[in-house]
């Protein structure tokens, strides 16, 4: 019995640094700016004007849409590219396979700061700066996709070969086996890839700053840094209101779907 009390106590204590920042973000966004550094857990008076200020200062709805649609396209695209490549690297034997896999893996080792200048030149030459194309194409085909390929490959490696043998006997070709047999089985791994990819795109910070130059093209992380007064001083409570709006919907989706979410993640990496 006392062991249980100890465990709960420990868990609750450990929770504080995980939960408190979010709590503080949400409540402080409704405090008057003079109370941001006060010790009170709740605002003395609740103000929601910060939330309307967010929309007045920036085309925040448009920016929300930008982040959302980019993240969705990138997620779907990455799932497709990673599933195809992951499957081929794991299950098909073709000449040069290992070399090609190592070539692709290089992307895992490169921080985006390293290649941002040549990439910027590339997209500039294609006339694609201040468009969302670089934020969509590079993650789907470039370095950020590599982790997804790796996860998918690990998953397909662990797939029992008997399933494919049977399908081949039934006259299915490679593409058929992939589409009818392997892909449906890989749902947990695809789920994990989807989560990783969505979060990665949703959090992208350096790239939007470099590529995008007009507020109606901005994405959310970039928009968050734009809530400043005339003199460049940050408007903390407005910033926190905007931050709350970017975080809370994702958190709610997570709480609702958390079983699939975490179990999807748990299926990655442990095998293989």
């Amino acid at each position: 019995m006392s062991r249980k009390v100890w465990l709960y106590g420990l868990l609750c204590l450990l929770c504080v640094p995980f939960v408190f920042p979010t709590w503080w973000m949400v409540t402080s966004s409704m405090k008057p700016i003079s109370e941001i550094f006060s010790e009170s857990l709740l605002p003395s008076e609740w103000t929601f004007s910060t939330y309307s200020t967010v929309f007045k200062m920036q085309p925040f709805g448009q920016q929300y849409w930008n982040s959302l649609y980019i993240a969705v396209i990138v997620t779907v695209g990455t799932m497709a590219v990673a599933a195809l490549a992951g499957y081929a690297f794991a299950r098909i034997k073709f000449p040069g396979q290992n070399v090609l896999f190592v070539v692709v893996l290089t992307g895992l080792l490169i921080p985006s700061e390293v290649t941002i200048v040549p990439l910027f030149q590339l997209f500039q030459s294609l006339g694609m700066t201040n468009t969302h194309w670089p934020l969509i194409i590079v993650p789907i085909f470039g370095a950020p996709c590599v982790l997804a390929i790796f996860i998918m490959r690990q998953f397909f490696l662990a797939l029992p070969p008997e399933l494919e043998e049977a399908a081949r006997m039934d006259g299915l070709g490679r593409a058929g086996i992939f589409y009818r047999i392997a892909l449906p089985l890989s749902r947990p791994a695809l789920g994990a890839v989807a989560i990783f990819t969505f979060l990665h795109s949703w959090n992208l910070y350096l790239e939007p700053i470099v590529y995008l130059s007009t507020p109606d093209m901005f994405t959310l992380p970039q928009a968050l840094t734009q809530f400043v007064d005339i003199y460049g001083g940050p408007m903390w409570n407005v910033q926190l209101a905007a931050a709350t709006m970017t975080a809370v919907p994702i958190l709610v989706v997570f709480v609702v779907a958390q079983r699939q979410f975490i179990e999807g993640l748990a299926h990655t990496g442990v095998k293989g």
């Binding site: 910027f120 500039q124 470099v210």
Partner: peptide, 22 residues
């Protein structure tokens, strides 16, 4: 067109645009 670049890191962003040919 007036492009607003955040004051924090303004010169950095401007230089990056120049470096990239923009």
């Amino acid at each position: 067109k007036f492009d607003s670049i955040p004051a924090d890191g303004y010169t950095t962003t401007l230089t990056t645009q120049i470096a990239g040919g923009n």
